[in-house]
């Protein structure tokens, strides 16, 4: 079993009468890219800040690299890197100088600076000050800064926020590269499930300060995959026909509904076979739950999946 990097148990935070975090419990194991999804104000940034020790918790427990006491957590945080919301940089300093500051903060050598500038495609910035960088460059520099101290665990809060499409792709590639090449475990947040689905291996859905669902990439794919929705008054006969057609991946939902997960392009052929066998088809069509719809359904935005009749 892989090592647990972060485990939070019933972490709660209250501001005045507002419970920003309500018994949040998650577990992140080594090698995971854990995507924390939630609408704006769901508590993502607050949760990340509690892990980094920037915000005290009112209730619950945080375990980081196996450490739970204050002193141990402080030591464990040296194995972490973070970039929360806007890139935290010294605007009057160059990329190199920003990295020098972080190297000094972490008590590490400056030898890695050139390598990181190259990795983040910032070698050409020279004497240009960080305040004159584009948002994409600043995001990359912020990540380079977090990498100065050789973190094993990276916390990135909405790293693609405000980036253009090419910047988003670039950022995604950088994160994937960090995971594959350096073995870094990542916790990243976004309010876009669609965006996270392209990178994360596990998901936690945060809503009103509560984790309402946790699932793996496979589970999410299963929950949101496309299928043929068949409504008939004769489910038994319909199942016989599906077997005759060689369809194996289907699910009888109830006495009138079957979901078929293969041969999605052959709706017409399936329909014809059913009709020829005198199965009464009330409705047949592809149904697909988009990631965002799935998210909204979970958070109470859209109650049902989108259905496309053919």
């Amino acid at each position: 079993m892989s090592e647990t990097i972060l485990k939070t148990t019933n972490v709660s935070k209250v501001y005045g009468k507002h419970k920003v975090l309500d018994k949040v419990s998650i577990e992140i194991k080594r090698g995971m890219i854990y995507g924390l999804i939630g609408e704006n104000g769901a508590g993502k940034s607050t949760f990340m800040r509690t892990i980094m020790g920037l915000i005290t918790i009112d209730e619950g427990n945080i375990e980081l690299f196996g450490e739970t006491d204050t002193k141990g957590l402080q030591q464990a945080r040296r194995k972490m890197g973070q970039s929360i919301e806007t890139p935290a940089l010294y605007p009057e300093l160059t990329a190199r100088q920003n990295l020098q500051v972080q190297a000094a903060n972490g008590g590490v050598s400056e030898r890695k600076i050139d390598e990181l500038l190259h990795l983040m495609n910032l070698s050409h910035t020279g004497k240009k000050k960080a305040k004159n960088f584009s948002l994409g460059m600043r995001q990359r520099l912020a990540i380079a800064s977090t990498l100065m101290t050789n973190p094993e665990f990276l916390i990135l809060d909405e790293p693609t926020n405000g980036l253009d499409p090419s910047g988003i792709v670039e950022m995604r590639e950088i994160i994937q590269r960090l995971v594959t090449e350096r073995g870094i475990t990542v916790l990243l947040s976004s309010h876009l499930l669609d965006e996270l689905s392209q990178i994360a291996t596990h998901y936690g859905i945060l809503h009103d300060g509560k984790i309402i669902s946790e699932l793996s990439k496979e589970e999410l794919a299963r929950e949101t995959r496309q299928y043929i929705e068949l409504e008939t008054t004769d489910v038994q006969q319909a199942v016989v026909i599906l077997d005759q057609l060689g369809i194996k991946d289907y699910e009888v939902i109830n006495g009138t509904e079957i979901n078929i997960y293969e041969q999605l392009d052959d709706v017409a052929a399936i329909n014809r076979a059913l009709v020829l066998a005198e199965v009464n088809v009330s409705r047949i069509g592809t149904s697909r739950q988009k990631l965002e719809d799935y998210f909204l359904q979970l958070t109470g935005g859209i109650p049902h999946a989108e259905s496309v009749s053919s």
Binding site: G53, L54, Q82, I84, Y90, N105, S145
Partner: peptide, 14 residues
């Protein structure tokens, strides 16, 4: 204001 204090404190600095 720049958020740079987070870079230091999140490293577990006292």
């Amino acid at each position: 204001q720049n958020g740079t204090i987070r870079n230091t404190l999140s490293l577990g600095r006292s």
